[in-house]
């Protein structure tokens, strides 16, 4: 991705930068985001493509679909995987028409591969 697109709003991911390190933080455990800010959490290949676990970005309101479009425009490298990913708000899957409130805890859930 182009980090400069988010430079003014990115909150550095806590806890170092190695997947081999112990766990340090989660979307649920992070301090509450300020108003008008979305905290977006990425996982697995999406986090690797973005280059960070968490991203705080300004948000003036809109739907999940609009959030998808904004992320894809700001970070084209993730667009193909983003199109195959689900969006969760506060741990619950959200449809594209769902309104994303400012301050929401957003998780991008790419296709799963557990087991």
């Amino acid at each position: 991705m182009n980090p400069s697109a988010f430079n003014s709003t990115v909150v550095p991911s806590p806890g170092g930068h190695s997947t081999s390190q112990p766990v340090h933080a989660s979307a649920q455990a992070m301090p509450p985001p300020q108003s008008e800010i979305l905290r977006i959490t990425f996982f697995a290949g999406m986090a690797e493509a973005v280059g960070r676990r968490h991203l705080d970005m300004p948000w003036t309101g809109g739907s999940v679909e609009q959030l998808r479009a904004m992320l894809a425009a700001e970070c084209p490298v993730i667009a193909p995987l983003l199109a195959r990913s689900a969006v969760a708000l506060a741990g619950v899957y959200a449809a594209d028409q769902t309104v994303v409130p400012a301050g929401a805890d957003v998780a991008i859930i790419p296709p799963v591969s557990g087991g």
Partner: peptide, 9 residues
């Protein structure tokens, strides 16, 4: 490397 997502979890 990306920090693990969950710790306090």
């Amino acid at each position: 490397g990306i920090p693990h997502s969950n710790g306090d979890d």
